[in-house]
Design a protein around this nucleic acid. Structure first.
Lengths: 203, 203
DNA sequence: GTCTATAGCCAGATAGAC
DNA sequence: GTCTATCTGGCTATAGAC
């Protein structure tokens, strides 16, 4: 329908701006402290207009989570296409991306205790699909890394996966950065090093 | 004043019950999702009575944090009194205590983004004193462990300290436990192992 | 689909009797 | 110090004009 494509494009651009604002605010303050008024103000539209695009605050957060997970899945697939790297390098590259996003203030956090948000996300098909696809792919790499002796095979693969996921909301990088004495890159590499050598097989 | 001691004792018992309820609710839902009504209901008194003991919700949380840090300081001092253990064993024992408290639902969490709470805590003398005393003592052990080659000396001591503190709010143990396939002790030891071998000196 | 204005709700905090 | 009842403000969400 070329007749409606311009309007649809405008719609997508507007919704993209909304999701960008939500993403930033979620990264800065988390879901509970983010208000819909702040989102509207940051986008520069009225609050009621927001609700024409998204039916609830939870839906706003879900949209931001979906977008960041699409980006994450892209990173995973990019790593899968590398033929020069082993599974450990790929896992590290994904964790590095998450840490860099977090330090750049672009990683939305899901304060794991909010029930309304969690139940909404659990019923969000696209979100759950992305979560499972990423988990499956990372899980396969983890099992392979354990088989090859790069990751301690006595650890449950779940523990390894959750430990990697937890880097996306690790408070340590932000606190270290706030001290002002280290660069982002230093912080990222230190955290990566302590994380992965903690998971590595005993020598 | 022996005349007033009975009343004062009752007061302390009542306030202790309040702090216990706050502690549990903070561990369960965090500061933002905990309501003062819930605290009052759990203690079995009216909300207005709470405000006779503590002037604000933030003060309630601060009291709970002070108590848990007094317990933590006690653990640190107990470890300092052990003559059979090296610094690494002592650091591990403290981290183990924090993880066990968390899995038992008794470790209050401070969702690091709330500004009203953080500013109140920053002006809370007893809280800051405890934080500094614990940090000083753990910091000394960390430096010693680095000098002795038990912890990677190329890592900033700050990073090591924050990494240990972060175990108290690590989401990994709770998620692993919720799967139901592992015991608390297994989870604690796995997390400790990955944490400390990540910090250990390269061999 | 955008806005202004407001409904409805809930949580933190307080008044005032006892 | 405890209670019941209430105030106050901020938040999500919606009504209704344009």
């Amino acid at each position: 329908m070329p007749r409606s494509s311009f309007r649809e494009q405008m719609l997508r651009v507007r919704e993209d701006a909304i999701v960008t604002a939500v993403n930033r605010l979620l990264a800065e303050k988390g879901f509970d402290l983010m208000t819909v008024d702040q989102v509207a103000a940051e986008v520069g539209i009225a609050k009621a207009s927001l609700y024409k695009h998204f039916p609830s605050k939870e839906a706003l957060a879900a949209a931001a989570m979906v977008r960041v997970m699409e980006q994450g899945l892209q990173v995973v697939d990019d790593q899968a296409a590398r033929h020069d790297a082993g599974v450990l390098d790929r896992l590290q590259a994904v964790a590095r991306w998450a840490l860099q996003m977090q330090l750049a203030g672009q990683m939305p956090t899901l304060p794991s205790q909010n029930s309304s948000l969690r139940s909404e996300l659990a019923t969000h098909a696209r979100y759950m699909d992305l979560l499972m696809e990423i988990s499956d792919k990372l899980g396969a790499w983890i099992v392979e890394a354990q088989r090859d002796g790069h990751i301690d095979a006595s650890l449950p693969a779940e523990l390894v996966l959750y430990t990697l996921y937890a880097r996306a909301c690790d408070p340590v990088p932000a606190v270290l950065k706030s001290g002002g004495r280290f660069s982002d890159d230093e912080v990222v590499e230190w955290v990566l090093q302590t994380c992965f050598s903690g998971l590595s097989a005993r020598t």
